[in-house]
Write a protein that binds this DNA or RNA. Structure first.
Lengths: 150, 150
DNA sequence: TTACAATATTTGTATGTACAAATGTATAAA
DNA sequence: TTTATACATTTGTACATACAAATATTGTAA
């Protein structure tokens, strides 16, 4: 559906404003789909995001500021977000031995297993989300978004 | 910046997952910019969104379900969101005479004035947000996002 | 006309987020 | 060593959001 029909009052807008709204609106549509995959696992999108960052560390710990840097949503309460992951046994944390201000956060085996279960479900979801676009179009879309942020 | 560098752990991902993350990440970047414009006016992004929908009605009232349909963020508490706009004098509401279940919501003159003040600021912000893309690229981006959601 | 289902909105409750202030630790200067 | 400053995280508080249940109104069928 064209953004003009999805958001009725966009007709009169210029191309720049239309683009900004289109990005935000499309993101919400995508997020809704992703959340339906995560919901049965009682995992929020930011929590899932953090777990994937932790897995990406490949055994190395991450501290809170690293997580904040890499999170999609830079919500300031990474502490409490990690608390939730701890409580569910998907992450563990310890004080950094070389700098006791820092906290080292790791993903647990249980957390890794959860992601392993989620991977194919999420991949399938994402394929379905972008199924209306060809490979070339996906490349173009990524390049345009990268360029937009540059 | 390429999404691979913005989100470090994306390297190993397929094109579909990369695209999904890129959309969500880019949206957050854009939203942050929009919020910096709104913040001095103590207006949240969803509130701004509702005000623009109300203005788009051109004198006709909107009821809550219409607002929910058209909102970017379909957060279920449109009631409380509108409460905030009422309290600040930017919107008013009354019971629909023909169907007393419905609530008719209007933008006030004060609300219209606020938007009139915001329009050029937001337009300038949006131009700056998309300034790295040409007109043609913006058209392509919009078309690709529309196609993605179709 | 009464009873029942459908619609539109509101409220309650739990959880999540934003931002400022507080805590604890490290580094550097006097 | 003492003091000051910067850094990393945590906590407090207010506000926002999600979802379910409650309320009120309308339309419809017995």
């Amino acid at each position: 559906m064209k953004i003009e029909d999805a958001i009725k009052s966009i007709h009169s807008m210029g191309l720049t404003t239309k683009t900004v709204i289109n990005i935000m609106y499309s993101s919400r549509v995508v997020e809704e789909q992703v959340q339906t995959v995560l919901k049965p696992f009682e995992l929020s999108l930011p929590q899932y995001n953090v777990l994937r960052i932790l897995r990406g560390q490949r055994g190395n710990p991450a501290n809170l500021s690293t997580l904040q840097e890499r999170m999609i949503d830079k919500s300031s309460n990474t502490t409490r977000l990690v608390d939730k992951l701890l409580k569910k046994g998907w992450a563990k944390r310890q004080i950094c031995p070389s700098n006791r201000r820092k906290i080292e956060i790791f993903i647990t085996d249980q957390g890794l297993n959860l992601l392993t279960t989620l991977d194919p479900l999420m991949e399938q979801n994402n394929k379905s989300v972008v199924s209306t676009l060809s490979e070339t179009e996906l490349e173009t879309l990524n390049n345009l978004l990268d360029k937009l942020r540059s």
